[in-house]
């Protein structure tokens, strides 16, 4: 067996150079390194393999309550850009980048469209929205009859589906969220501006000399 003087970071199969990731995103090098501290916590919670699997992602989102959730699954699938069933560090940083306060609205709109277009047809269909509404009701105390669900869908589609073909295309979505900006609140995480103070231990593990930018 060979003996390698590798650091903990290089043992992570998806580890990417923070300088490179910072150049591709709204994050500074220090912020990418702070995100690595978060990534290590999540990716080591069940299997310490340097990758986040779906179970680890859900544990992190729901604070150690093991629960299956349609929406968390959907976010996971969008983070898992290589469709391997796991999220590596590069995937994690690039996906969180979309949620950075400094990222243009068009990118956030595009991500949210994909979030709701669950089967990837290029349209948000009424049946998908109904499925999501039912899933939401399943996770909350809210009880709504099928009639009320259909009324909510009628109202939503009369507002969003401009050509009334029963599905929302990208242009219709863009126009709808521009008129309803509160829908995009979930696409911005103010936390991403404070990650170096939330995870200060990155300083001890930094491989970059010049941390102060």
């Amino acid at each position: 067996m060979g003996c390698f003087a590798s650091t903990a970071k290089r043992q992570h199969p998806g580890y990417e150079d923070p300088v490179r990731l910072a150049s591709q995103t709204a994050f500074s090098v220090s912020e990418v390194e702070a995100l690595f501290e978060l990534f290590k916590n999540i990716s080591g919670s069940v299997i310490d393999d340097g990758l986040i699997n779906k179970e680890e992602f859900q544990l992190a989102l729901f604070k150690n309550q093991r629960k299956e959730n349609l929406f968390a699954n959907r976010i996971f699938d969008l983070f898992d850009v290589k469709k391997r069933g796991v999220i590596d560090f590069g995937d994690f940083v690039r996906a969180l980048n979309v949620f950075h306060p400094n990222i243009p609205m068009e990118e956030k709109n595009d991500f949210s469209f994909k979030l709701y277009d669950m089967d990837g047809t290029g349209f948000i269909e009424r049946k998908e929205v109904k499925q999501m509404l039912i899933a939401l009701l399943g996770e909350s105390e809210m009880r709504l009859s099928d009639e009320i669900i259909e009324t909510i869908l009628d109202k939503t589609f009369s507002d969003a589906d401009a050509n009334q073909d029963g599905k929302i295309d990208r242009a219709e979505w863009e126009s709808f969220v521009t008129r309803n900006p509160s829908l995009m609140k979930i696409m911005t995480l103010p936390y991403l501006k404070d990650i170096t103070t939330t995870f200060p231990s990155f300083v001890f593990n930094s491989e970059v000399d010049d941390l102060v930018t």
Binding site: F62, I75, A135, L136, I152, L189
Partner: peptide, 25 residues
């Protein structure tokens, strides 16, 4: 509330979309 008739406003309240939880220790 008008939001209650907007399916996406309701759906976006799911905990599964609350990525802020990842940052809370």
């Amino acid at each position: 509330r008008p939001e209650s008739m907007n399916a996406f406003a309701l759906i976006s309240r799911s905990q599964g979309f609350n990525l802020g939880n990842l940052f809370e220790k």
